[in-house]
C-alpha cells in the first residue's frame, strides 16, 4: 500500500463524509472519500450525475451549502492548511488564491452586469494587495494569456460566445496563480472543436504555472487526455483509483468496466453497447453492502453484506470490490 509523503501533497483528504440533511431524508452524497494529490499533478474524478464528485470539490473550498450540507467526518489539508478548522477570514484568502474553481456553466458563473475585465481584476485586487490600475493591467494580461484580445476588457459576458466565456472563467481562476485548480466539467457545455481549444489552453497554462488540478468529468476521453491519475466515483465512494494506465489498461472494478462498455468508442466499432443495467441507487437509501452490487453482474450475496474496503493491487492502484478476496477472480474486460 502506497502512502505518499505528506510534504509532497497539495491536497490531502481523508475519509470525507458529507450528507445533505433535507426534509425528505438524508442524502448521503460523499461516503468516505480519500484524495492525495501531489503538487503539479492532475487527478481526474469520473462518475455519473449524483455520484458526489462536485460536492467533494466544493468541500475543498468549504463551499458546500450549509444547510442542508453537513460535513460529517474527515479532514482536508490544502497546502498544509487545515481547511476544516480554518476561520472564515482565512478561508476567504484561500479561495481564488491558493485554490480556485472553474464551474461547468460559464453562462451562470459570470456576473452579467459587470464587464469581464472588472470581474477578473476584482479577484486580483482582493488577493494581491495592489492598486486598481495594477489589477486592471494584470487582468488584461490574463485575458491575453487565454487568447482573448486585451481590447475586449470592457465588454460584458453576453457579448462573448460560450467558449470565450469559459476562457474568461479560466482567466479568472488562474489570475492569482493558484496552486490547485478545481475544474468541474469545464468543457461539458462546449462544442468539441472549442473543447479541444479550451483543454489545450488549460494544459499550456498548467505547464506554465505548475498548478495541480482536479478535473471532474463524466467523459473518460477527457480523463485520458489531461490526467495523471484517476479516481472512479460511485455513490460517494472511490471504487477504483490508480494511474491512467492502471485504470484504463488494467481495469479491475466492475463499475469501471461498465463505464467503458457503455461508451461508444470511435476506435473500436461494436455492434451493440453493453450498458450497466438499472439505475444509480437512491442516495437517501443506499444499500448496506457494496452500493454497486444491485447492478453488478459479478455480485454474490456476500457483496450485499458489507461495504468493501480498499484492496491495493499495486503501489498505485486500489479497488473497492470484495470479489478480489478470491485469488482467481477476474472481470471480463481484458488488459489492453
Amino acid at each position: 500500500m502506497a502512502q505518499k509523503n505528506p510534504k509532497d501533497l497539495i491536497l490531502d483528504i481523508k475519509d470525507l463524509v458529507i450528507h445533505y440533511e433535507t426534509d425528505d431524508g438524508t442524502v448521503e452524497a460523499v461516503n468516505g472519500i480519500d484524495i492525495q494529490l501531489e503538487y503539479g499533478k492532475t487527478l481526474g474524478l469520473v462518475g455519473e450525475t449524483g455520484s458526489g464528485k462536485t460536492t467533494t470539490a466544493l468541500s475543498v473550498l468549504r463551499l458546500v451549502p450549509d444547510p442542508p450540507g453537513v460535513i460529517k467526518n474527515g479532514s482536508i489539508f490544502l497546502d498544509g492548511k487545515d481547511i476544516m478548522n480554518l476561520p472564515q477570514k482565512e478561508l476567504e484568502a484561500v479561495r481564488g488564491h491558493l485554490a480556485s474553481m472553474i464551474f461547468q456553466d460559464p453562462m451562470t458563473s459570470l456576473n452579467p452586469v459587470f464587464t469581464v475585465g472588472d470581474q477578473i481584476s476584482e479577484v486580483i485586487a482582493l488577493h494581491e494587495n495592489c492598486s486598481k490600475a495594477e489589477a486592471d493591467q494584470k487582468a488584461g494580461d490574463m485575458l491575453e494569456v487565454v487568447g482573448i484580445p486585451r481590447e475586449r476588457f470592457g465588454e460584458y459576458p453576453h457579448q462573448f460566445s460560450g467558449g470565450m466565456k469559459q476562457r474568461v472563467v479560466i482567466a479568472m481562476a488562474l489570475a492569482c496563480n493558484p496552486k490547485l485548480l478545481l475544474a468541474d466539467e469545464p468543457t461539458t457545455a462546449l462544442d468539441v472543436t472549442i473543447q479541444a481549444q479550451v483543454l489545450e489552453t488549460m494544459k499550456g497554462l498548467r505547464e506554465k504555472y505548475g498548478s495541480a488540478m482536479i478535473m471532474i468529468t463524466h467523459d473518460l476521453g477527457i480523463i485520458a487526455e489531461v490526467c495523471d491519475e484517476v479516481s472512479v466515483v460511485y455513490a460517494g465512494q472511490i471504487v477504483e483509483h490508480g494511474t491512467l494506465v492502471d485504470v484504463f489498461n488494467h481495469t479491475r472494478h466492475p463499475y469501471t468496466e461498465g463505464l467503458f462498455g457503455s461508451l461508444p468508442n470511435i476506435e473500436i466499432k461494436r455492434n451493440r453497447l453493453s450498458p450497466i443495467p438499472g439505475l444509480m441507487p437512491d442516495p437517501t437509501d443506499l444499500p448496506k453492502g457494496c452500493c454497486f452490487a444491485p447492478r453488478c453482474k459479478y455480485a454474490t450475496p456476500e457483496c450485499e453484506k458489507a461495504r468493501p474496503g480498499k484492496k491495493w493491487l499495486s503501489d498505485t492502484h486500489y479497488v473497492r470490490c470484495s470479489r478480489y478476496d478470491e485469488p482467481n477472480f477476474k472481470i471480463e474486460r481484458e488488459d489492453q
Partner: peptide, 12 residues
C-alpha cells in the same frame, strides 16, 4: 478537425 477533436477513452 472535428474528428480529431474527439477525446478518445483509450491510451493506446
Amino acid at each position: 478537425a472535428l474528428l480529431s477533436a474527439i477525446p478518445v477513452p483509450s491510451l493506446n
